[in-house]
Amino acid sequence: MGEIKTAGELNKKYLREGMWPTIFCNGCGNGVVLEYTFWALEELGLDMDKVAFASGIGCSSRLPGYINADGLHTTHGRAIAFATGLKAANPDLTVIIFTGDGDCAGIGGNHFIHAARRNIDMTVIMINNFIYGMTGGQLAPTTPIGGIATTAPYGNIEHPFDLCVVAKALGASYVARWTVSHPYQPIKSIKEGIQKKGFSYIEFLAPCPTAYGRRNKLGDIQRLWEWYDKNTILIEDYERIMKYGDEKEKERAKKMIQIGVFQDVEKPEFFTEYQKLVERLQGNTITKTSSVKSKKMVVKK
């Protein structure tokens, strides 16, 4: 099969068509993220036998079931923990994780923090719809202040969790956030994230018309998708406004959600460092009888 140019050929290659159509509600953004991932994988030309997917529980975590590749559908919040094991067993695998905001920020928050801290080579695609969609619209850690959920019927008073800032502070190699309504930047971001040797975190702001949009009076599907266009601002634009803008513009920009690539750095990856450690210590075992002094010399090398 030659180079894929149309979506029909792409679907035949990557989609488990027996599982289709999806269980997602009308107007949900999860399917769009799936398609962006397909295009990114296609443009990279990866062997799908060397790619493994992992996911937890939730709407977004059903995505590996639709992909014609090996996938791991794990317990709630533990997708990153399972993926770490996957990577430890076979470091040659490209591991991609689909997770939701409740899955990644709420229940699996600690796994996320420590995977980012260790800089394990994996790509986390987090689909943020501001709510626990599958279980009926409970309050998620990412729900904005004033947002209405079934467990917050009079408006949310908790401060939302900004996982991009957390990942950036923990020194993840690649951190980006996009909305689903802009196609080309996310595809490029997923590509860069997969290529990156280290922890890459890509967050998608995906509309949830059923559980979030309807309850928060954000209108029908079209108006909800427009809400995401109007209430997001590119990080470059935001910084420019903060530098040169007047008070009114600054006030407006502060209320918006920043999108863009937040961090793109090179950093030693956990399992390559681990391999180096193993090699160093195995080198030591040969000269087991040597003194402490010579061991220190080996360490210095």
């Binding site: 999860n30 769009v32 962006y36 196609p183």
Partner: peptide
């Protein structure tokens, strides 16, 4: 190809 990329159900193919 914007409709193809934005379709949440991957139902559109543009040739």
């Amino acid at each position: 190809r914007l409709c193809e990329l934005l379709c949440p159900d991957l139902a559109i193919t543009v040739i």
